[in-house]
Design a protein around this nucleic acid. Sequence first.
RNA 1: GGCCCGUUCGUCUAGGGGUUAGGACGUUAGAUUUUCAUUCUAGAAACAGGGGUUCGAUUCCCCUACGGGCUACCA
Length: 508
Amino acid sequence: MVDDKKVRVRFAPSPTGGLHLGGVRTALFNYLFAKKHNGDFILRIEDTDQTRFVAGAEEYIIECLSWCGILPQESPQNPGEFGPYRQSERKASYRAYAERLVEDGNAYYAFDTPEELNAERNKTPNFTYGHKTRSSMRNSLSLPEDEVRSLLENNTPHVIRLKVPEDETISFSDMIRGQVSFETNIVDDKILLKADNMPTYHLAVVVDDHKMQISHIFRGEEWLPSAPIHILLWEYLGWKKEMPQWAHLPLILKPDGHGKLSKRDGDRLGFPVFAMNWTDPASGELIKGFREMGFLPEAFVNMLALLGWNDGSDQELFSLEELVEKFSIERINNSGAKFDFEKAKWFNHEWIKKSDIEELRPYFTAVLAEHQIFQVENHYLDIVINLVKERLMLLTDFWDQASFFFKEPETYDLASVLPKWTVEKTSFFTDIIEKFEGYEPWNSEGIESLYKLAIQASGLKMGELMLPFRIMLVGGKFGPHIFDIAATLGKEESIKRIKKGLSAILAQ
RNA sequence: GGCCCGUUCGUCUAGGGGUUAGGACGUUAGAUUUUCAUUCUAGAAACAGGGGUUCGAUUCCCCUACGGGCUACCA
């Protein structure tokens, strides 16, 4: 599978918008394979379609990779010796290869305008530009030689198309699905060079993969049908011996219905599809990302890796280092996987639980800052994190679970307390305030035993006095062990909240 | 339509000629938590169908069905 050739793989997105989770997974598998085999992981920007260029998309892609911890060795920002790493900057080099193909009789000039092609498609239901139809179109195969020459001399807009041979079978061994074959008769004469002199994806990938000495290609299954075109090109360009090995990854599908997962599904079903928030510069529309929704990068990467790959054991939690160590192409699945957001959240939950406090702290500091809470002492924050972290699915849940540690409740769930309120309870709480005031040291166990003793002395039932206490400190029916909360809040703050809560109850 | 790829619990998957078909998410029920969540325990839940090959197929082969992808001067 991996011969003596140096492993060089590339992730080659086009900068047209946010980075889809399927894209991140492709990048991840490339990265894992490269690392596993001491190879290079390269980022190449495929921006040959200038009409689809979106400002900021390239920087965004790099930031996503950086967030995931899978930065490339070579990229536009960090060029190696195989640059440039943007196809638009390699523009000048492509035409020569296309011309060479024409000279060798493996490609030809075509002068049909987009309008003419459209008309043809409307006329003939399943029109394809190929060996059956090219003689009736306007190209250097059908037109007289001198007409072709004068068209070219007059700079008539034209494209260069691949001349796909007749009656051949192209087959290759895909590292994931084994032997795959195609009949050339059904492959169309794909455009290699557009009228704007830019190459199409087909020409550009092959030329660049060769120039960059790419050894293995991991890409989505949607590319499988164009594999024969690429193989033909490797052959016609005379590079067949250096052709990389192919691996077509299964697709990530919509959780409900059917089809490839798209950004629209995220809106519709309420989960992110992009790695990070993406704002479309043209429309201003914001599309949510996993990062901003509260995912740990470790969890995101872990979840993605297990979507289509497993190590054969029951293990599901893997760090990036472990993935590198255990990754193997043989264990990549060959069928598409429906994305399951519930499972994604479970991965995040597990990673929050197993992450170190130092790693977690900055995330929660950021969550607090969003709610105008600043300058929290690390010691206090750490206590709170340890109290609530196993209750969190998303980092952003921290606010719902722990806001009361940083500000007193604004509202009280009085409905769960009022109906059973009695004067005895009022005096219990005025009494407990006094007891608390004189109590030291202020720790959870101590407070608990003092509180329970007071309950016994009052003759009231324990169950009647636990909930009101919680409502006073927290505001509602949630949160960790109540005496841990009181201990963390401190004596002064706890007493203050009891007083305030009590008056809120009495005010009704 | 044509071509290509695929098909094990609802979902992600392990397995592989003879298994009680395993795990995880979700779900259900209990326990713990004098709140809620977590956690723990238990349960329900799958080999798409039909033909072969075979002593024996979920596993190998073929067909069908179904699903997906591609079919642009997009990647």
